[in-house]
Computed example of a mutant assay.
Amino acid sequence: MKHIISFVFALFTVSSALAQETDTDPASGIILDARDVSLDEFSWVKRPLVIFADTPADPRFIEQMGYLTDRLDVLDSLDVVVITDTDPAAQSELRRTLRPRGFGLVLIGKDGVIYLRKPAPWKVREITRTIDKLPVRQQELRERPGGS
């Protein structure tokens, strides 16, 4: 139990440090709290990846956040913003809209469509493969310089 509490504390310390860094860091502002955001602000700009848990000590939440924090640069390059909600009692707008049960990972496209719901942690590689198949991402790839 001590290891879990230590890991959770370290995770929140890293998240706080990332949030306090300047905008020159590409990872700054990529992990947000559900209480502070609305899905409308990401429409056609970012791909929200929402991580739900009933508590920040949930081992699945800790595992998922470990996967994500190790590869924040990859997620940022795909216009992903990670939104966490570990307080069911707060009844955030996201929790009321997406209605998770326990741990959950939800990927929402730039177009506002829910493309993925998973009840278990996913590695960033699996998430990026899913993103690369999305219609808006396919369009982005075609329109970038040197795209086919």
Results as ranks from 00 to 15, higher is better:
D23R: 14
R117C: 10
E41H: 04
L72P: 07
S15N: 03
L116H: 09
Q20V: 11
E63R: 14
E93C: 01
I114N: 11
P26F: 07
T24S: 14
F9S: 12
A120C: 00
D36N: 14
S77M: 02
R96D: 03
K46A: 15
R129L: 10
D73G: 07
D36P: 02
P88T: 06
L107R: 00
E93N: 05
S16T: 12
L72R: 04
V74S: 15
F7E: 10
R71A: 13
I5E: 13
V80I: 13
A90E: 04
W44N: 02
T128W: 00
P100E: 08
T13Q: 11
R142W: 09
A57R: 08
D54T: 13
W122F: 07
F103Y: 14
I114K: 13
L49T: 00
E41W: 03
F61E: 01
I108Y: 01
L32H: 03
K118Q: 15
R142T: 13
A57K: 11
L107M: 05
I127G: 06
Y67F: 12
W122H: 02
L75E: 11
T86Q: 06
V81W: 00
I5A: 12
F61L: 08
Q139S: 01
K118W: 11
K133G: 08
D36F: 12
E126G: 10
I131G: 06
D111C: 03
